[in-house]
Write a protein that binds this DNA or RNA. Structure first.
Lengths: 122, 122
DNA sequence: GTAACTGCAAAATATTTGCATCCTT
DNA sequence: AAGGATGCAAATATTTTGCAGTTAC
């Protein structure tokens, strides 16, 4: 793993953003600093390295957010809030949902998204 | 809304399937009965008509399942189980998760997916 | 110096749209 | 008969891959 400009810049953007960023948003923010393809590859790498989460948005689009405490494996059981008005996706770290799955299913990961209006759009 | 062959067949497939179906699976099952584009259009229509749910899978792919009780609006707050081995997606109708979102957020929809191993793959 | 990273072009995929034709009612 | 539904081709959009050149360590 090398500290390249692209990697550093992309990780900075994601870390400093309040909301999760899409590939397109990252590309726009970088403003030509690096190629679109590089962004794909750096994101994959950051996810492998457990520095960034991949979030599947309610519309199926992808968003990326900084990991909080994923050292050896991603653990992303908090809720993501997706705003239907401005499109922002926010990690609600504090909220852990409670649920029961029939025993015959073996649970490994969890992906919870709630959509509606964020505080800014209410 | 017309009762065309494509519409009838596609709705039948989805209704009779234990698991949610992807566009590709539907296309394969129909085996050339209708065009790929038609499947896209029929699915959109069935969703509009509240006969079919669109489910966003953990990998971002789309799956379609029959609606249970969505008369005027989709209400899809149950958990979807996504098998990481066989790729099947199942609606767990009986399980309603409990969670609390900060008041400043206005909740409209919910999308909960749990992934792991389904009973057949354990 | 070398292996990893990057950019460009092109391939592969997935979805949407325009338009002429067909079919349900 | 008429308007919605369909098929085909092509346009769009998104992501992946091959390869040559560049860069971090």
């Amino acid at each position: 793993m090398r500290n390249t400009i692209a990697r550093t810049q992309i990780l900075d953007l994601i870390t400093n953003s309040k909301t999760a960023l899409s590939h397109a948003e990252i590309e726009q923010l970088l403003d030509g600093l690096c190629n679109r393809v590089t962004i794909y590859r750096v994101l994959d790498r950051l996810i492998d390295d457990k520095l960034v989460h991949k979030i599947i948005n309610v519309d199926g689009s992808l968003k990326f957010a900084a990991c909080r405490n994923c050292s050896d494996h991603h653990h992303d059981s908090h809720i993501h809030f997706s705003c239907l008005n401005c499109g922002s996706v926010t990690c609600l770290e504090s909220v852990e949902p409670v649920f029961k799955i029939p025993r015959k299913y073996k649970v490994q990961e969890v992906n919870f998204t709630v959509s509606g209006l964020c505080p800014d759009c209410t």
